[in-house]
Design a binder for these strands. Structure first.
Length: 481
DNA sequence: TGAAATGTTGGGGCG
DNA sequence: ACGCCCCAACATTTC
């Protein structure tokens, strides 16, 4: 009789789960366990919004396992110690998990695998999370990619359609005496209830991920190419947190889209799958350049004279009180739902790093804590892209104007009206620049600038020029990354 | 997956 | 009719 431990981490699903399938194939008894780290002292410990998601995702996984005759054991503590205790208790002779790629995860997993193998156990790990793992896509001479387009071409050449396995139809029962901790005891949910909006915005779990994919692929995806940039429309897939926690795999997504759009993908699907490619690229980058979660990939950017006193401006940005409607709408959407439209992420990031001249790491930290889809690779790449110091980054002089971006991508002001209700009555003509509205117009709309809604915290023209001066220190130097 | 400054062109008003 | 100026509208350059 062989007993396997199946260690769930960020692969919280039953379908297309290779570690789960192997465990079932090779063992009579399978013990699914989730192990929560006891201390949150490590630098990129899971953020508050992600903890909320994790709670509900674990609950959902446990429900699914129970419906198949099993359940999810929950423990907290050092994974190696927990696994060893569980092995001693159950006589398990093998351990399975799906691989992760963040630096701290790699260090931990390497250590756990080595230690368990020295204990005499069989340890097998799998790819559940990516179309291609970071070392599978390489430049001709073996170096990692630093530019998206050739990376993407290499992925296309390797082939995107990779079969996804169906979920098991039954699971062996757990030994009777096996008792874990309760989900609630992990304390993942907030002590103060700031999560009302999260419940309205999201359905968590594997079934919800599949439903969301089904809806998106049968309607939204066809207009994705044009609609995805409009934050006032429901034009995005909203799959990111499901993908991050592994409630669904990129293989499942691609297969699903291809099966429903024979023989070729629609233009919308092409551009959506390309975004899946960006996720793979971000994982590739963080794997090969693990310092880039808090250190610029391009060393020249160490010389940027960031401001050193900015606590107040940072706080206003975080609270959505900058006086720029599209910025404040985005930051409030983030706070209320744990998510922000991608176009708006770029705009708020540009304001923070360029106009406010605040280090991109501050923005990355805030997103890390507040996003339900916070992903170390995607977050680091995104912030470095905006700041200009990353792979395939925006040139340093590319500075978004929040008024023009608002007018271009939220022309009727729908998005601003939804998230900045104190401006809702303003006509579209001025909703992205209330300081230019006539006094009579403002009072007729119930807006009292400086009182009911703040005046802009920076002058766009002057702060743009300051940013250009500050960032010009990287000119005329060779790349040292 | 910018924005602003600068350059060019061409139609229309006007002496 | 002609030259001149003005200035949108568009194109190019620069940051």
């Amino acid at each position: 009789m062989s007993t396997a431990i199946l260690w769930f981490r960020r692969d919280l699903r039953l379908a297309d789960n290779p570690a789960l399938l192997s465990a079932l194939e090779e063992s009579e008894t399978v013990i699914p366990v989730y192990i929560h780290p006891q201390s949150s002292r490590q630098p990129w410990a899971i953020g508050s919004a992600s903890r909320w998601w994790l709670h509900h995702s674990l609950k959902s996984l446990d429900d699914s396992l129970r419906s198949l005759g099993s359940k999810l054991l929950i423990h907290s503590g050092d994974p190696l110690l927990v696994l060893r205790a569980l092995i001693a208790q159950t006589g398990a002779d093998r351990v399975y998990w799906n691989r992760l790629y963040d630096p701290a995860d790699i260090d931990r997993d390497t250590w756990v695998k080595k230690s368990l193998r020295e204990d005499g156990l069989t340890v097998e790990t799998y790819n559940s999370n990516l179309l291609y793992e970071p070392w599978e896509i390489r430049r001709p001479k073996g170096e990692p990619y630093k530019v998206f387009t050739p990376f993407w071409k290499a992925m296309l050449a390797a082939g995107l359609r990779i079969p996804a396995e169906p979920p098991p139809t039954r699971m062996p029962a757990l030994p009777q005496d096996l008792q874990g901790e309760s989900l609630d005891s992990l304390g993942l949910l907030p002590a103060i209830p700031w999560d009302h909006g999260f419940y309205d915005a999201w359905s968590v779990g594997e079934a919800a991920a599949l439903t969301q994919l089904d809806e998106f692929s049968s309607s939204g995806v066809f207009a994705y190419k044009t609609q995805r940039d409009l934050p006032g429309q429901a034009g995005t897939s909203r799959m990111s947190p499901h993908l991050h926690f592994g409630e669904i795999s990129p293989r499942q997504i691609v297969v699903h889209l291809m099966e429903h759009q024979e023989p070729g993908l629609s233009a919308g699907s092409e551009s959506y799958v390309r975004e899946i490619g960006w996720r793979e690229f971000a994982t590739h980058l963080l794997f090969h350049f693990p310092h880039t979660c808090d250190h610029p990939l391009d060393d020249r950017f160490l010389r940027i004279p960031w401001r050193d006193t900015y606590a107040n401006d940072l706080r206003q940005w975080q609270k959505g009180q900058t006086g720029f409607p599209i910025i404040d709408a985005g930051m409030r959407e983030l706070w209320h739902t744990g998510w922000m439209h991608n176009r708006v992420r770029m705009i708020v990031a540009s304001l923070l790093t360029k106009n406010l001249l605040i280090p991109w790491q501050e923005g990355a930290r805030w997103f890390w804590d507040t996003l339900v889809d916070a992903d170390l690779g995607c977050n680091s790449m995104g912030w470095q892209w905006t700041a200009g110091c990353g792979a395939d980054a925006a040139p340093y002089f590319r500075i978004f104007n929040p008024v023009l971006q608002g007018e271009r991508f939220d022309p009727e002001g729908d998005y601003v009206r939804r998230w900045v209700p104190e401006l809702a009555k303003l006509p579209a003509r001025v909703i992205h620049k209330p300081w230019e509205a006539r006094a009579s117009e403002l009072s007729a709309c119930g807006v009292n600038l400086g009182q009911s809604y703040p005046l802009p915290i920076v002058d766009l023209k002057a702060s743009r020029e300051r940013a250009l001066r500050a960032f010009s220190v990287i000119k005329n130097e060779s790349m040292t990354a």
